[in-house]
Design a protein around this nucleic acid. Structure first.
Lengths: 220, 220
DNA sequence: TTATAATGTGACCCGCTGGTCATATGACCA
DNA sequence: TGGTCATATGACCAGCGGGTCACATTATAA
């Protein structure tokens, strides 16, 4: 956690630092991010950096928590869709809302996911808690789908979680990578064409998962 | 490409260098790999390294080409399965054979895929050719599946390629990560349980892709 | 043997890293 | 005014990075 001095800072200065950090992590990942560059780009002295943070990880952790909080808030603001949704419809809504969120904070999301998907894989047991939390969320969704009879009860839970996680990441990556090429990323995400693309990807996953175990066996 | 001096080296020495490089890349990726460590671990002088290679990328490129060649050979050695296979069965065979290959050269594969999936995403337009080649292979497989009437002709080609690529990578990652925890990775990959796991993952993909476009629309 | 070419070597250079610390600044209070 | 305390600063340090180069060693040929 950043030190108190950081929170005592005038908002403008704080934002400038955060902005520089986001840009740095998005561009270089955690391992290769340079504190020297961050301080240069945020116009503070190196010594000051260490008055605000413990080290690189400390800043990153702060951004990570920030993202999690803001995302949660964003989801709460959007009225959750009708209560009697099919679980897969719900998941689709989640993904799409997530993508909208991502397009609102593209650089931050890019910075975080870059680290979580790459450096994180090898260096970061430190951030395992966040990943574990999303996995638990998915687990719940699947349990619900089974309870509602929308998914085969004999389906392998961990496998289903992995599949959903893989697809979330794949779609998120795709959107981020393609989206950054666009002029107006938010508009692009909301466009019919992009939404259709997302739908198609999710349908492939959905029909795969819906398939009952009996059909699994028959299919081989 | 490595310089001629490298190929003039006695095999033992060459192997030692390659081994050290593989270990280094597997552990640190391309960006953070240290030439100093490589030379230290292979027992050669730093100056010698630059007599053999241009730089880090040069070594990596060599490993990459090596992997591609050996994999191709491996696939040729295994008798290709019966000619009248369903395309999805063929794909499944490819994945499984690929996993067997991976378990034979786990560190090399780990080194390569680590770089291709992470560093490569941001730094490496240099290795785009390899990725493009596998994509073309997948494209061919899909075209064949459509020609045989096993896949809906109106399916989005690029999407299907992306799905297959994503799954190849996901499975490969999963196998590598889990496999490295095992005593005998090759035995583990060949075990019924692991094979069943792979099957299940692929079935999810398969049934998603088999789904005809008409059903796509009906499903929404 | 000697001359020539190929290969091997590690000290050295410079740039950048994360991190420290003595000092300077300036707000607040007596 | 003078004292105190939080904050700001950037020169400085040791370590490691990639890359070079003058020199040492070895192989080849005459």
């Amino acid at each position: 956690m950043p030190k108190q001095t950081f929170f005592n800072l005038p908002e403008e200065k704080r934002k400038k630092i955060i902005h520089a950090a986001i840009e740095e992590f998005a561009e270089y990942g955690l391992e290769n991010a340079s504190i020297n560059r961050i301080v240069a780009n945020s116009g503070i002295a190196k010594g000051s950096f260490y008055q605000y943070f413990e080290d690189k990880q400390d800043v990153f952790r702060y951004l990570l928590d920030m993202l999690e909080k803001e995302k949660l808030e964003y989801f709460k603001e959007k009225h959750p869709p009708s209560m009697n949704m099919d679980t897969f419809q719900y998941f689709r809504w989640m993904i799409k809302t997530g993508m909208e969120f991502n397009s609102a904070y593209p650089r931050l999301v890019q910075a975080i996911s870059r680290v979580m998907l790459t450096d994180g894989l090898y260096y970061g047991k430190n951030f395992a808690d966040v990943r574990e939390r999303t996995r638990r969320g998915l687990h719940e969704i699947i349990a619900q789908a089974i309870a509602r009879g929308e998914m085969d009860p004999s389906v392998d839970m961990d496998l289903a979680v992995m599949i959903m996680e893989t697809w979330s990441n794949a779609i998120s990556n795709y959107i981020l990578q393609e989206g950054m090429k666009q002029k107006d990323i938010m508009k692009w995400v909301r466009s019919a064409k992009t939404q259709e693309m997302i739908d198609k990807m999710l349908y492939v996953m959905e029909y795969g998962l819906r398939k009952t175990e009996s059909e699994f066996v028959a299919g081989s």
